[in-house]
Amino acid sequence: MTMATTTALSITGLTKTYSNGFNALKGIDLEVKEGDFFALLGPNGAGKSTTIGIITSLVNKSDGTVKVFDHDLVSDSMEVKRAIGLVPQEFNFNQFEPVEEIVLNQAGYYGVPVSEARERADWALKALGLWDKRRNIARALSGGMKRRLMIARALVHNPKLLILDEPTAGVDIELRRSMWSFLQEVNRMGTTIILTTHYLEEAEQLCRNVAIIDKGAIVTNTSVKQLLATLDRETFILDLSEPVEALPKLECNYPTTLVDPHTIEVEIHRGQNLNKLFCDLEKEGIKVTSMRNKANRLEELFLDLVEKGDGQL
């Protein structure tokens, strides 16, 4: 993949106040480079969907500017719309139409000629495993299939910027992973992707850059690598082969908790090593059969940032 040079999305001082007075966005600035796989994270009601709604012309902004590939959302809205493909959070297709018709209609709305639309629709439906269902009424599809249908629909006009709002919500693990590889492939082919998700593992696996939004403001905006580098501690869960009644005092003095007779939780800070911990456990005759992270690393950071609310780690 070639390194990005141009800006796919540029947001400056974006604000949104709804008619009921709710201030959903408080002047956010955001920049996404062309070719990026970008995560927009935040708790419910943080302003993610409002931001996406404004970019895709579904929500009217109160103030600020939005540019997509240098086209202004207000003065050049047709070019902005042409560049974007949207996979919304909720199903927003006619459930009574056949799958193929939904995808072809969307191509038509973007002015794609019928022969080209059919070619693109065939590719998208095959790539997303919907080819056999193309003549079925959309309502008859499973939840996972409906999500894939929305991805196929969003890609049918070959957008330069694909925006996915919680695309894998409610999708089983196997399907989620196959969607991840598909999206990675789409990104490799040159499409810039912006993703909002509640699955932080998803953001860690897929995205190069990340912004965390909370209460209508951007809390942090950096690369996933840099963000993870700021993590100063991790919590591990150790499964024991033999039950222990009480946790002995360990020489390493790492904070430990006995969750149940078969499970210990231990917090490791940056610079500390696990060898010392295992030596101490060995000395106490405690046998560890397996070990895992208590939470996803990004999840810990996310909770820290959102709880502090000031972006300071």
Binding site: K81, L86, F91, N92, F93, N105, Y109
Partner: peptide, 17 residues
């Protein structure tokens, strides 16, 4: 119906005057 089923959004996001 398209408002109720939200598929009016298909048109609103598209580059159609």
């Amino acid at each position: 119906g398209s408002k109720f089923g939200r598929f009016i959004e298909e048109l609103l996001i598209s580059p159609i005057p």
